[in-house]
Amino acid sequence: MPAAAGAAFVVVPLLALGLRVDWSRFGELLGSPSSLAALTLSLQTSAVATLACLVLGVPMALVLARRRFPGRQVVRSLALLPLVLPPVVGGIALLYTFGRRGLLGQTLDVLGVPVAFTSVAVVLAQTFVALPFLVVSLEGTLRSVGQRYEAVAATLGAPPSTVLCRVTLPLVLPGLLSGAVLSFARALGEFGATITFAGSLQGVTRTLPLEIYLRQVDDPDAAMALSLVLVAVAIGITVATARLGERAHR
């Protein structure tokens, strides 16, 4: 019974959303220039953010899973902080780092790399909140795979870089992929840090969640149609990661 209640708690609101959508106008609502711009921008920035997560997250996960150093737990907690931090706080933190008057923003501005109010800011916000998903997923896989294969590879004459490319990364590929998919999903859903840090302008910084929030004010039907798109993407991603998980356990 409680399990059924829990399932209902998740499913019923989604059904309610589906019931409220104006299906006769569905195509028209999604096809509007602002909807399309938001969708395109979201897909592009999330893809770039996922790449950034891979570039930054893989070394982080490797260090956290493989190296022993004093304060590792502290570093780990800090790295995972965006997972539990309200995204709006992350946005404020980013603002005071990359903003025009921020710690690094001033230098970047002087170098001709403006961050504020650009799509770069969106990617930064998305990367900030999505990074821990990749790190957690990959670190877990690295730990469960263990170091024995790496040790064997070393005794076969493979230097550390070769071990990484030919043994470690192929072994953790399922974890890496599911981490990347989760990061992409998180980036796609990112709202709080983006609205705080990046602003909101059609085609530049107004991602799908921001568009939904805005349309909720003047065109709730469009907001609902777009919400349904995000729900569909979320379901697709959940199924994909579950499949990857199964593959990893075989």
Binding site: L95, G99, F117, T196, S200, L201, T205, L210, V217
Partner: peptide
Amino acid sequence: APVSEEQAVTDVLAKVRAGEA
């Protein structure tokens, strides 16, 4: 030609206050 169209007055103010805008 604004760089951002915010959802709420408070968001506009926050960006001005931070010197972003």
